[in-house]
C-alpha cells in the first residue's frame, strides 16, 4: 500500500486553511506517527486519506491511482478509527462487529469478529450490550472494528484515549505487529506511544509539515537545544520555552528548549518529547 500526497491543500468553506501544500509519501510496511498541536491539521489529513473529505488542491494517489477514483477499493482495504465516534448502543459488541464486518464485505464475519475481539481482549464482553461497556471498552470496540478484515491501510486517530496504561502498552504492541506488513498511521498526543513503536514521524503545525523522518532524527535535531536550570537562576530570555517544571527540595528545576541555550542552563540529552516541543516552538521545519 502506498499513499502519495502531492501538493495537498485543504481549505474549509469558512476560509480556514487546514493543510497547505503537503507532499508526502506513505508506504507499507510502516507505522507512522502523526504529531502536531491541536488545529495542526492532523484530523483533516486523516479524513482526506480516508476519503471522508475531498482536497481543495493537489491530489492523493493510492497505489498510483487518484483516491477519488478508487474510493470503493480504498474503503475495502481501510481500517479507520476516528477520534470522535459512536456505536449502536442496542447491539452487543459482537453484533456491532458483525455488522461492521458485513459492511466491509467480509466473507466469514464470525471468524473475523472472534479474532478482533481476541486482539482487543474483549472476548468476555462479546455478548454484552454496548450501552453497558465502559469508555475504555467502547474504545476497544472501536479499535476492533478498524482491525476487521485485516485492512492493508490502518488509520488511528487518538486510539489510546481512555485506555489505562497497561492497555496502552498492549495496543502499542498490537499496532507494531500490524505494521509489519501494512501501512499504519497513528495520530496521538501521547509522545510515549509513538516513541515506543513508530518507525517514522510526521509533525504537522498550522497545516504544514514541520518534520518527516525517524524519531532518532528528530531527537538528533534537538541535540544542544535542550537544557535544565534552577528557576531562581533564570533570566527568562526570549526564545526559551519551558517544557517541564519540577519542585525539588532545592527549589524549582526547569527543563527548556531554545535555539541557543542560555549560560545558566545545563545541556541535557533530548527526549522525543523535548525534540517535538523544540520543533513546535521553532515553528519552522528543521
Amino acid at each position: 500500500m502506498k499513499m502519495e500526497l502531492q501538493d495537498l491543500c485543504m481549505t474549509y468553506p469558512g476560509g480556514k486553511q487546514a493543510l497547505q501544500h503537503l507532499n508526502l509519501s506513505l508506504e507499507s510496511p510502516s507505522l507512522i506517527g502523526l504529531l502536531g498541536p491541536n488545529g495542526a491539521g492532523k484530523s483533516t489529513l486523516m479524513k482526506l486519506l480516508t476519503a471522508a473529505l475531498l482536497p481543495t488542491g493537489g491530489s492523493i494517489l493510492a497505489d498510483g491511482q487518484p483516491l477519488i477514483k478508487t474510493e470503493r477499493q480504498l474503503k475495502s482495504r481501510l481500517g479507520y478509527l476516528p477520534q470522535d465516534f459512536g456505536l449502536f448502543d442496542e447491539l452487543t459488541a459482537a453484533q456491532f462487529l458483525d455488522y461492521m464486518a458485513a459492511l466491509k464485505g467480509l466473507r466469514s464475519p464470525g471468524k473475523a469478529v472472534r479474532e478482533v475481539l481476541k486482539a482487543v481482549s474483549l472476548e468476555e464482553k462479546a455478548k454484552s450490550k454496548i450501552r453497558t461497556l465502559s469508555g475504555g471498552q467502547r474504545q476497544r470496540v472501536g479499535i476492533a472494528q478498524a482491525l476487521l478484515g485485516e485492512p492493508s491501510f490502518l488509520v488511528f486517530d487518538e486510539p489510546t484515549v481512555g485506555l489505562d496504561p497497561e492497555e496502552r502498552i498492549h495496543f502499542r504492541s498490537l499496532f507494531s505487529r500490524m505494521a509489519q506488513d501494512r501501512l499504519v498511521l497513528l495520530s496521538t498526543h501521547i509522545i510515549e506511544d509513538v516513541q515506543a513503536v513508530c518507525g517514522r514521524l510526521i509533525v504537522l503545525n498550522q497545516g504544514r509539515v514541520l518534520f518527516s523522518g525517524t524519531p532518532e532524527e528528530l531527537i538528533q535535531a534537538a541535540a544542544g537545544h535542550v537544557g535544565a536550570f534552577w528557576e531562581k537562576d533564570a533570566a527568562w530570555e526570549q526564545g526559551l520555552h519551558i517544557t517541564a517544571r519540577v519542585n525539588t527540595s532545592h527549589g524549582v528545576r526547569c527543563r527548556a528548549v531554545a535555539d541557543r541555550l542560555p549560560a545558566y542552563a545545563r545541556e541535557e540529552e533530548p527526549s522525543l518529547e523535548d525534540a517535538y516541543l523544540y520543533l513546535i516552538s521553532r515553528g519552522a521545519a528543521l
Binding site: A52, E71, P82, D84, F85, M100
Partner: peptide, 14 residues
C-alpha cells in the same frame, strides 16, 4: 449522526 456512528459507517461504505 447523533451517536456519531456515521463516521465509522462512512469509512466502510458510501
Amino acid at each position: 449522526s447523533r451517536s456519531r456512528v456515521d463516521v465509522l459507517l462512512d469509512a466502510a461504505v458510501s
